[in-house]
Each structure stands twice: as C-alpha cells, then as structure tokens.
Nucleic acid binder design. Structure first.
Lengths: 196, 196
DNA sequence: CCTACCGATCGGTAGG
DNA sequence: CCTACCGATCGGTAGG
C-alpha cells in the first residue's frame, strides 16, 4: 500500500525541517515519516540538501506569487498594502512547513542556494517598499519615514505570525489581518509621539 | 597559552549555536573554536545539552533584567514602553549570540527546559502587556485594542532586529529605537484606517 | 587538556 | 522500495 512520489517526499521533508530543523532531521527520520527506510528515499531524490532547496523554493515561490497578485490590485496604495498583508498571512498559515523552513532553515543551505534565497527575499521585500513609497508620494502615508525600515517592521510582524497564531482560537484569520493592517497603518500614517 | 574556563566554553557555544544551530554544531567544532579537542570540553561541562541550556538561560536572564529596569522607570506608560523597547534593542545588539540561540534554538532543548523557556518568554511578554494595559487605562493608548496582540506585534519587530540591523551603518542605535518606538506608538494610538 | 578509544548514527551506494 | 552495506562523524568516557 501507498507508494510515494517525489512530492510526498518533499512535503514530508518540509514538515520535519520546520519542526526539528534541517540538521535535526535524519534521512532515517524522514523515511520513518513516510513508512519506508532512509535509504529508499534515494530512489526519489539525489540528496538531503536537494530536499532543503526544494522546500525553500516552494516557500519563496508562494510569497512571490502573493506579492504579484497584491501589486496587481486596483485601487490605492492602502488597498495594495492590505492585499500584501492578507496574502502574506494566507501563505504563512496555509503553508506553515514551507514557510517555516524558508524563514528559519535557509542558513543550512549551501552557499549558492543561500544567496539565491537572500535575493528572493529582497525581491519580495521590494514589493512592500514599492507600495510604501507610492503611498508616501500620493500622500496616503507619511513621507518622512524610511520605506525600507517600515517594510522590515511590517514583515517582522507578518513572519512571526506562524510562531504564535493558532487557527480555531478566538481570533479569526480575517481579524488577524485586520489587526496587523491596522497596526501597520498606524505606524506609517500617524504623527503621534516623538516623531516630528 | 590560553587555558579556558567554563564561561569561555559557554560563550563559544553561543557563538556557534547562533551561527549554525545546535544540531549543526558538533563538540569537535566547538573544541576547534577554542583551540582544543572536542573530548577536552568534558573537563568543563557534562554534556552538549547543558551548554544549550546555559546559553539560553543567559538570554532569558538578560531580557528579564531589562524588563524589570523598564518597569521601574518613573513617568508615564509611554515612558515605560520606550524603556522596554530601548532595553530590548540593547539586549539583542549587545548579546547577539545568546539572544539568537534563545530565540531560534529553544526547540532543541529537552522537554523540561523548553517548557521553562516558554514560561520565561511569557513572563517577559507580560511586562509589555502590563504597560499596554496601563496606558490604555490612563488614556495614553487606545483602549479598544488587545494588549496581547499588540505586545506580540511589538516583540515581533524587536526580536527580528538582530536578523537585519547592523551596527556602523547609516542608522544609529538611538535612531533605530526611535523608529521602532514611533512605529509601535502609531500602532497602538492612532485611529486611522479601518479600525473604528 | 590530550590519548585512545567506544557504540551509535550519519548521508549515501550497489545491486536487486 | 528493500537488503546489505560503506566510511565518516557523532556525543561521550577512561585514564592519565
């Protein structure tokens, strides 16, 4: 019963990499997860590192697609920021394993692949910078704040959601998005406090 | 030349755990870092796991002390929030290794120690919740927002700083604190956007 | 802190 | 996908 294909192996790898880390997962662990021996995995893949690359690529791809959809939203910069936030939350919650591995295990990648991930992250962050800059130009956001810093702040909140948010609790997914969006908007619009 | 004491070993362990992760660091790696053999480390410690516990305990302790100092600040809730943020940034930047290990490698802890760390994190987060609640009660912050959610948002930004901020760049440490503080204040004070 | 190890486990391969 | 392995490396110990 239950032969496995390459996709099953990559998915299971994502599960274990996210839960125990790349170096904390052995090929035998991964085999056990699928009901087969560690050595049998090599019928599907070439090596352990290849699995890590593939899981992380999936995560990167999901984020990039989300950004493209969000940037295509008609309306104001505020609308596109909201779409970026909603899209990011959806990716994190619908693909916890790939995202967790993407965010936490990229350090275990070989040099070349790691540089590729860094570049992918910067392309993704650029979508946020673009929206913040546009919004500042049109007066939707304050124009005296650094778009890069604010992009990082918003992404910090978004990337951390997978660490604490649990579905099925008192706060629904839409409410979560509202709260993040509201918090972020306050951070880039208001002129309260010590900022002149 | 250069005999080592237990503290040296723990510090070096923090360096490697933060850089490559607990499972990515071997006792021989750690020995090499100190100029001795892996087996020689056991003159100073009982086991690898003990090193992880100790590094993470140092991180937890630093945050707890910072919170206590911040809560003792005379003045308004806004002043104490600022002190919490400034203290957190200082701990992250002055103790990158312990903090990085505390934040990213706690999953590698044995069950009991891991539960202890979770409890320590909650105690620390409670300081933020307390200040947000006080500020809401005195009218300094909006009272219709959930203190726990906003604490998590602020801590998400703070915990991520070690991942991107580099000292010696265009943004100084005081400026970094200002930006985080301003962003957070906007998030909890303003009533812009879709929040009623 | 080194020498000289230990048994266990690692990623991976040959051959079926 | 299993059997039967391989050399390398793992955390750790005894004895000095």
């Amino acid at each position: 019963m239950s032969r496995h294909n390459r996709d099953d192996v990559v998915s299971a790898a994502g599960r274990l990499f996210a839960a125990r880390g790349y170096h904390g997962t052995s090929m035998r662990d991964l085999g056990r997860e699928l009901g087969l021996l560690g050595s049998s995995l090599y019928a599907h893949i070439e090596g352990k590192q290849e699995l890590l690359v593939e899981v992380i690529d999936r995560g990167a791809e999901l984020f990039q697609q989300s950004a493209e959809r969000a940037l295509a939203v008609e309306g104001s910069s505020v609308d596109r920021l909201r779409a970026l936030i909603a899209g990011h939350v959806a990716v994190v919650l619908d693909h916890r394993d790939e995202v967790g591995t993407f965010l936490n295990e990229a350090t275990a990648l070989d040099e070349d692949a790691r540089l590729g991930v860094i570049a992918a992250r910067d392309r993704y962050e650029a979508a946020f910078r673009l929206v913040l800059r546009d919004g500042a130009a049109t007066g939707a956001f304050r124009s005296d704040l650094d778009p890069r810093t604010n992009s990082i702040f918003i992404l910090s909140i978004l990337n951390a959601t997978g660490r604490w948010y649990r579905e099925g609790g008192p706060v629904g997914r839409a409410e979560l998005v509202d709260r993040i969006f509201g918090f972020a908007l306050g951070g880039i619009q208001s002129s309260v406090g010590s900022r002149s």
